[in-house]
Nucleic acid binder design. Sequence first.
DNA 1: TTATAAATGTTATATTATTACATACTGTTA
DNA 2: TAACAGTATGTAATAATATAACATTTATAA
Lengths: 132, 132
Amino acid sequence: MQKQQNLSKNQQIIFDIIHNSSEPLKAYSILFNVQKKGIKAPLQVYRALDKLVELGKIHKIESRNAFIACQNSSCQISKATAFSICESCEQVSEISNTKLSKYLSNFTDEAGMKYNKYNLEFFGLCKKCKSK
Amino acid sequence: MQKQQNLSKNQQIIFDIIHNSSEPLKAYSILFNVQKKGIKAPLQVYRALDKLVELGKIHKIESRNAFIACQNSSCQISKATAFSICESCEQVSEISNTKLSKYLSNFTDEAGMKYNKYNLEFFGLCKKCKSK
DNA sequence: TTATAAATGTTATATTATTACATACTGTTA
DNA sequence: TAACAGTATGTAATAATATAACATTTATAA
Ligand SMILES: [Zn+2]
Ligand SMILES: [Zn+2]
Ligand SMILES: [Zn+2]
Ligand SMILES: [Zn+2]
């Protein structure tokens, strides 16, 4: 529940919920959670989510349409994200691996083109699920 | 319009449309396109899309909710995909780079975990857009 | 042929996301 | 202070994306 300077009221409420969640949250599940706090409409949620993504405080897991808090002590590099996703229990964690991020940030395609941003999602079975 | 053995009628119709398109297509835009061919309902489109993805004939661009034909002479490795996306004109192309795919397929995270599948999306400006 | 899996057709509905417009707050500068 | 710009909020309506449920048909193969 750590107070983040410079987030607006709605942004703070929604960040806290995502940050305290052990799993990625979907927009409408967030909406349901914050209705008691006076946030009533989808758009209020989506606006806060957009801003938080832009700030790098949260990331969107594209394959799941869900959001998790940044786990890299708030990476401003929302431009270079990598996640590990368990296909059984849907647990998601952010991968923080210097070699990987260097490799991808420096990646140049066949045409010599470089990219300023990437998103990588790995899928498999987490330890827990594998041992079942 | 190359005939693909072993695709069903609906799958073939929808594959052809995607394959002939120069840009990623969205499900409802596909639906609109095939209504004259008797495919009237979203579910018919989604079912064909699911199957085509499973077969590796098309891929879903997760960040865009859109589909493109596989550009790697039909990769059966729908399990290891990488794309280049222009943030200006939305042109998408599939990246086929042996070093990259080897690197990612062999990637092991801090916990020693390996993954059986990944999807990578690079964002930037394509040549055309950069020179503008 | 009989059984099984895969594909189709149809209706309704659930889920995810945006448009449009009005208002309020925050910080800066004339 | 007043005027302004930029950001954030509130609200209603609607658009866009995707799935559930159920009935039927077609393909494949034992
Ligand atoms: Zn992060
Ligand atoms: Zn798991
Ligand atoms: Zn491919
Ligand atoms: Zn471009």
